[in-house]
Design a protein around this nucleic acid. Sequence first.
RNA 1: GCCGGGGUGGCGGAAUUGGUAUACGCGACGGACUUAAAAUCCGUUGGGAGCAAUCCCUUAAGGGUUCAAGUCCCUUCUCCGGCACCA
Length: 968
Amino acid sequence: MVEEDNKYNHQAIEPKWQKRWEESGLYWAEDNSHKPKFYCLIEFPYPSADGLHVGHPRSYTALDILARKRRMEGYNVLFPIGFDAFGLPTENYAIKVKKNPAEITKTNIDRFRRQLKSLGLSFDWSREVTTCDPEYYKWTQWIFLKLYEAGLVYQKELPINWCPSCKIGLANEEVVSGKCERCGTPVTKKNLKQWLFKITQYAQRLIDDLDKVDYLDKIKTQQINWISRSEGALIKFQISSTKSQINTKSQILNSKHSVEVFTTRPDTLFGATYLVLSPEHELIKNKELGIKNYDEVMEYIEKAKKKSDLERTDLAKEKTGVELKGIKAINPATKKEIPVWVADYVLTGYGTGAIMAVPAHDERDWEFAKKFNLPIIMTIAIDNASDNLTKEIFEFAKKISILADKKNKKFIFDGGFGLDIAYGKITRNHGDIDAQVEKDDLEFWKEYFVKEGFEIKKNPDERFELYIADNGKFHIDFGCYRGKFIKNSIKGTEFTAFSPKEILNFKKSECKRLGTKRLKDVHDFTLFNEMAYIGDGFLINSGIYDGLTSEEGIKQITKWLEKEKLGKPAVNYKLRDWVFSRQHYWGEPIPLIHCDKCGIVPVPEKVLPVTLPTVRNYEPTDTGESPLAAIKDWVNVQCPKCGGKAKRETDTMPNWAGSNWYFIRYTDPHSNQAFASSKKMKHWLPVDIYNGGMEHTTLHLLYSRFWYKALYDLKLVPGSEPYSKRVSHGMVLAEDGKKMSKSLGNVINPDDVVKEYGADTLRMYEMFMGPFSEAIPWDTKGIVGVRRFLDRVYRLGARGNEHGAMSTGPKAQDSGLKVLLNKTIKKVTEDIENFRFNTAVSALMVLVNEMEKQKQLPITHYQLLITLLSPFAPHLSEELWEKLGHKESIFKEKWPQYDPNLAKESEIEFVIQVNGKVRDRMQLPADISEKEAIKKAEQSEKIKKYLDRRQVVKKIFVKGKLLNIVVK
RNA sequence: GCCGGGGUGGCGGAAUUGGUAUACGCGACGGACUUAAAAUCCGUUGGGAGCAAUCCCUUAAGGGUUCAAGUCCCUUCUCCGGCACCA
């Protein structure tokens, strides 16, 4: 770009300052400082071959602004950067271009580093870490061993995603809707021994400790949902087989075989009419049982295994299963024999991998029982205790109807009372009556209801109350009760009943407030029709527990099970243990050795790291093993314990491993004594603010919190939570509103933007484009506006000597601008802290617009503007600061303070409303009293017009804002 | 299906948490400068009626609470994100 008078030359300015900042080490964090510390962290990038995405600067600039501001406020700031370099995309790319992933990574990182530096981010580059650097992953391996020694790692045979065509194990993210990402073949399962982390052991703490941290609510909820705790009971079902007939109670208790199930509904135990095992369940393998149709069962299991996840979890598909013939289970409550089935709708990974099926009260069991003709027993009824109340209401309604007829008034019930049947399911109980009356009759009805002892309330949610709206709508809420099916006819004086069948055919809206027949009938209807009742209620068909509420039933039955040693209360989490093995090359080798004699032996600390050897082929092998398995001289080692022949573990770690603890390493990145010195950790940790994408709020955030807690338990880190505060940025979408992707050809390259408009413009545009946490489409035209703004700031400083800001001309005493300046300082300061960068930028724009209108602009005012602008547009601000004659960097300046008294206007536009509508506005002192305001209002011609010949009912005065005159 | 978050001009979005709806920016239109264009500057810009002053309507739709609702409550529609046979 040619340098013009009215535009600044970003291509000259930006590299100049980047170089100076780097040379002076302006942004280096101090390990020993008396200043308060501030650790702000961005998720370090994965250096893909695509280079930097315009989404990266959004997150980085935001925290850069915060970091710069905090430095100016006197904090010792740690704002580090590194690279999350291990992982699949690089490996796949390496395979494609037949190059070493290490070389590719180096090239990519170099490019990323150059790109990041061109954005003028105030990273402390002296602390850069890279996860694939042996100096780094030495400590990843070390942490792994510490956690291994602590008993948090175990081995288990588990299915991996397997592409039968590529003969390759796939990561979950390579499976796209059940198919191999590369060739489109449906993915199946293959069992392999894998390393797992016992994250489930920390499930409860991972939930509980969320109270200690300041994460966005939606992040907390997502974590809680991911862990998903449910309370219930473990119940033991004895198994009888053809080989050992069991009939008596004592025999049942002594039976050799049993199946344990987890349920959240022990109150439905009496309705458990069969058991279902997952295909992977251990019991099936037990030959002693004498399953008669063993071959058939095995065939089913084999089929299930071949199914993809997609097929198995497809909700639309019909349920399948096979009965285990020749064996029965005993329902511990009824002591009756019930059949045992195997079906793949029962998952192996959750609970015990077996369930008690209660078809009457579980939709899936219902569906299964219907298909295979299994018995269904209702054990939950819905409360029918308040029949009397219902009757009362009924009578009352009749009375009103008769009265209405007599007096020739209208009273139309719309709605009934009883069960709430919504969305095709009986959900909960409800009872209210809506009614409509004629407006003219309203007074009559009001009077009547008051006479009847009703209190007329405004809030329709209060129970047992009458509510009458001015538009003639009634709402009588009688609280919860159950009753007969009733329905008003349109006339409002007749009631008709619905049949159960009718109810089933109701549409969503019609189902809202319907009565039902007596509850027993509801159950008959459920039984003979098409649904399970999954809600709470009262126990029936449950022996001595009949009549208890579900809640009470759960307690009592669990208590009894515990006493009889047939079960116990239990908590389950959906969270699974973390599979830590990858059968891939490009990851940290797991530092374990398999010795025939000694078993699993950890690699001794002293010889860490176990470095990744160079191999010829990076493709996973067709056995599903990592390519490392093929390197004989790497695999074969001496056992560190006995010196005998041993083999290395050939699986590598997932790319979560390095990113799990990088924020710790930043505190002491060059130590070869420890993963970080405890002194430095104590100084810097926890991270004060951590920003990243929403896509990492479950896995990455949870995994790293888990490791941190485990390390805390080993007294290796100073706290139990790694991040005090977590925020998230929204995605930058393409101009078409879609996700940017190479295949769609809608990718914006930040390099181009930096080249054409400059880094300051890019930074500011990304802050200005919209709320930080929302996804926002890119708008090339929008950038122009920001660049224009920066040029105007530039010109404002350079304009004519006489009145220009660059000169130390006369100090204008423009109090209007002074107020605006203070307001702007306040707004920008607060907005940065609250991550509302878009409005901070607009506040700066407003200030500049005002400044341009000034005839004289005192240099102090201009300097203030530049200081406020500096975190957003660091290069231009430095340049202008220097032009103003300053020798030191603007970032050594103090962040501006505002005077709260000056941040308010002394005179405001006061609004006068009549009946809530704005009728006049006038310039008045901000602290004007009510009396004064009323006086002014009464003088107004515009207002007079509205007050004329009307009665003033009320005057509402809001200080500093408005006056509302209510007239009749 | 469940959980979470939204819906405001032609577009991205503001609105001090119940108190002037549409800040700021983009775009569009008109004008100035220029031989011309770009750049820059100035003006207009939610919709409708009117020559005008002025008036009416407007925050997905409908209803409610309130002196006052984009904001609170109820109902409906709709979009986005996460989870999903989790017993």
